[in-house]
Design a protein around this nucleic acid. Structure first.
Lengths: 245, 245
DNA sequence: CGACGTGTTGATCTCTCTCAATTAGAGTGG
DNA sequence: CCACTCTAATTGAGAGAGATCAACACGTCG
């Protein structure tokens, strides 16, 4: 399988991708070791695995998860193209979470000390990584708020809106009707701390009410207003104004 | 109020503190703007606030939180001395979470572009910040697993163990009997996605069983084994070995 | 001394879980 | 082409963990 040079990285097609200087491309290229391609449901990183390298998700969807010893599991967040993987672990220690694919997926594998080299040789990219890491944390924050304090209906509405936004932002072919939605109901359940059955019932309820629709692995938003009302997201960063009592 | 120069930063007394070169001290010093001292329960950052600077928590405890418009709130994680605050927001955008103190607390305030300057002028410190950020995310990951998949008893056991470890690691005066525990039951509830009443009942149940004790704002672990069994934490990074059924 | 914050406990109520069964589609092999 | 198997989605029924409602105790404070 032919590997893509960083200068032709498919991520560049993404509207979210930041332009890089030729030097930055060379740097990335020099740290890149190879690519891995996985099929849906395959494990990229096993929980507790040591010495996992640094990855970038180039194409496809995946998720991070943690499990308890009796099998209960929680999906921490979903990974879309452009996301970094493995910034968490200091080299040498065990992965605190697993990473599993949702779709066919291609990962770019970097050498173990890439994180340090990146900082050392390009403060700009080092800074970007810090920011990306912080941003991923804020995704987990959102989910924690959902799981801790929102009802099942509200959680689902929130998940649909946030995933839709992320997926739509990556769309190159706009207007295709909805966005890809490769999650099974089990994934939704594991991502929201709900049981499979209750997830199904809630999803159907919202669908029957005409709020959304999931067909052929694509998510269509039918009534964003209503979903947003349920989710109680303040429109992109506007401060919550509420009577504090 | 006299401000402490970075070279005499009280954090240096902490066993967790990394030694810094004189140049790094100078760098921090040059980016530092001032200190803020807050009383318990005061707000350092309001949700939605714009232009919050970068802080370091020097002394005392605090927490990050998010709220819904009807007042439901979720504590995202607890902040102890040495933690960074505000890495999340790009300069100019709104804080996605608030920060409130639990005790008297002293924060070090840095200029707005400190994060970038730090990366630019010291890759080592830049690298450390990414790592700290990633580490904070892993704390949120732990909580998300708890809130999503653990029972009330298990959640509380997990919280007690993790907070005990963090607090103990900061202790300079060992053997003082327990560690400081400035949370009210309401904080525990908000941190674990439980109601106040149920938190109280569960806390009492564990206490009556002799697993722990909270007296005078200090937490004493009476039966760590039993708590760890409830929490189902694998001993510091050992991979979970289980029949996958 | 009354107001308030925190902790405690008992009595309901309900949202969500668990158990069970069924349907539909995709893939396999005979 | 048709049984057979698997996975994902669906629906109903009963059970339970945790929420909500209500009181009360205790200490601090203006």
């Amino acid at each position: 399988m032919a590997e893509t040079p960083c200068s032709l990285c498919p991520l560049k097609k993404s509207p979210l991708f930041l332009a890089h200087s030729p030097e930055e491309n060379d740097l990335m290229q020099s740290l890149k070791r190879r690519e891995v391609t996985l099929k849906p449901g395959e494990t990229l990183i096993r929980e507790g695995q040591t010495d996992a390298p640094l990855y970038t998700l180039i194409d496809g969807w995946a998720f991070r998860l943690k499990t308890l010893s009796d099998g209960r599991r929680q999906i921490l967040n979903f990974l879309l193209p452009g996301d970094f993987i493995g910034v968490q672990q200091k080299m040498g220690d065990a992965a605190a979470h697993g990473v599993v694919t949702l779709t066919d997926a291609v990962f770019c594998v970097f050498q173990r000390d890439a994180l340090w080299e990146l900082h050392r040789r390009s403060p700009t990219m080092g800074f970007n990584i810090t920011w990306l890491t912080a941003h991923e944390e804020s995704l987990v924050d959102d989910t924690l708020l959902s799981v801790g304090r929102r009802s099942a209906e509200e959680r689902i509405a929130t998940l649909l809106i946030l995933l839709f936004k992320r997926a739509a932002a990556l769309q190159t072919d706009a207007g295709a009707g909805g966005v890809p939605f490769p999650l099974t109901q089990q994934h939704v359940a594991d991502g929201l701390g709900l049981s499979l059955v209750h997830t199904n019932k809630t999803l159907r309820k919202l669908e029957r009410r005409g709020l959304h629709q999931i067909v052929d692995g694509r998510l269509h938003m039918r009534d964003v207003k209503a979903l947003a009302r349920l989710a109680d997201l303040y429109g992109d960063g506007r401060p919550p104004q509420r009577p504090l009592v």
